[in-house]
Design a protein around this nucleic acid. Structure first.
Lengths: 295, 295
DNA sequence: CTTGCAAAG
DNA sequence: CTTTTCAAG
């Protein structure tokens, strides 16, 4: 079962006195005020929060100034977090942990006023056990950070992924039925169309671009969820993940597998959506960003 | 059972063409000729041959110019060796492998003419299984590279060490009975007297300085084996290992646990014996060196 | 505190 | 190829 850590960002429990400033750890100056008419959201698979932190995640967030941050593949449990890995003081943070150390994990950080209790449970056994779902509600919207299992390490894990996707479909239906403006942010581990992968031909049998996975995505979008980056960039190529074999990243041979999946009402409030991540390389994924009009 | 790799140094089996010069890998210039009247021996626990190589082991050996090298704790199996980890071409090398990857292992390299077959078996089951014994004979002497198990990780491993020491005592008797000039070089994992440890008082209950271990060493020396460094440095303090906790090495808070154990006839031919290793720090151990008169 | 392996992506 | 854990020293 997932251990749940929900609440305001806290100081390190070891009581080692660390200078805790009201801003992003390691960044200079005070945090910037939220923009008056819009808020900004960032979604990133960090491939290890400790690793990304060591590569400058926090100063980068400070500079880019998001109001909501959704992270996946933290590979650190809540009780291992040090000050350097935490949202600024005053932010709300919620984190879903995997039972297994150094594995999976998802979180949401926000400075928007929060409504109700964050949730790290969605009823999908695998998501709950492996820290793949984390939700925070605000007056403006509901935000979910989601991490779909990879199927690339073999048949067994592909089976796990397929079963997860089946359950996820029902979950997405239930979420949409709530009727709230909502964004499900995360690493879906599927490139949808031939425009979402650098080489469709050579990857036609690769996990993440299998016909049934692509069809799953098509059906999800047909049900009303909006692939926000694609809605803002029709016909364009943009990737959010590069293999770390060979020169994949340098040659921009990537896949777009990280999505902001929005309800139509929220999608209509997006003023901009962009991918950022070939540089700085904070992880093997790019961040997906969006600005939304406030209500 | 130990896998045995015995024979001349070979090129990498992957047939990747690597510039193989007749000298220490990574060192400039040709290997030096042996000294005319003496030969030089080096004994070092490398704590990972790959790690020590990355810290400059090979250029250092090139500069120090040994004729015989005994290494322990290689933490690499023979079939994983690349050119960078091998003795110069033309040297004889023998290596005892542990069954378990990344664990233990001992080797002897020499440019002296070799007599008979190197041996990586001594009949001690643990030594044979864990690559703790490697022997090469030359006309001048017999050389054994030996790695006694550590007892520091708990009661169970202390029991293994004690039983190993019991068997080792009989093995040393048998080796001495061969009547050849012989040196057993290695990490014995025992500091013999209070002069062989920086803080005898605080370590009186530490594995490696337990009364029965020290007594074992006393009895071994009483049976005729010579602790060569001590024979050349009576009353002196000298260490061959430093914990990597705290500032042990910087403060020279060490233990002398690496020995050249010589038969009396060979000990009489030693012209010099020294410890070298607080710098350069190629591993957490120092090397033990000696020069011997040729026959 | 360090090495090297393992599992996973 | 990378991150993190693990056993061992």
């Amino acid at each position: 079962m997932a251990s749940a850590a929900v609440g305001k960002a806290q100081k390190g429990k070891e009581a080692r006195p660390e200078a805790q400033v009201a801003g992003w750890p390691g960044a200079d100056g005070p945090p910037q005020a939220p923009s008056p008419d819009t808020f900004r959201l960032c979604c990133l698979n960090v491939n290890g929060l400790r690793s990304a932190t060591s590569k400058g995640l926090m100063p980068w967030l400070h500079a880019e100034n998001p109001d909501v941050v959704c992270l996946q593949e933290l590979r650190i449990q809540t009780d291992q977090l040090e000050a350097a890995h935490r949202a600024p003081t005053g932010w709300t943070s919620a984190q879903a942990d995997a039972e297994k150390k150094g594995y999976s994990g998802a979180s949401v950080w926000t400075r928007l006023p929060v409504r109700g209790q964050p949730s790290v449970r969605c009823g999908l056994p695998l998501a709950d056990l492996e820290g793949r779902y984390c939700r925070v509600d605000t007056a403006e919207l509901s935000v979910v950070s989601l991490y779909v299992p990879s199927g690339s390490s073999g048949e067994e894990r592909q089976g796990v992924k397929d079963s997860f996707l089946g359950d996820l479909r029902s979950l997405m239906d239930r979420l949409a039925a709530e009727g709230r403006p909502m964004v499900v942010c995360g690493d879906i581990n599927i490139a949808h169309t031939e425009e979402d992968i650098h080489n469709a031909k050579s990857n036609k049998d690769s996990s993440g671009f299998l016909p049934h996975e692509r069809a799953w995505m098509t059906e999800l979008l047909a049900s009303g969820w909006v692939d926000l980056w694609r809605a803002h960039h029709p016909g364009e190529r943009g990737y959010s993940w590069w293999s770390n074999r060979g020169q994949a990243r340098a040659l921009d041979r990537g896949w777009r597998i990280d999505y902001l999946l929005c309800t139509p009402d929220l999608a209509a409030r997006a003023t901009r959506c962009w991918l950022q991540g070939r540089s700085p390389a904070l992880s093997d994924h790019a961040a997906v960003w969006a600005d939304f009009r406030r209500l």
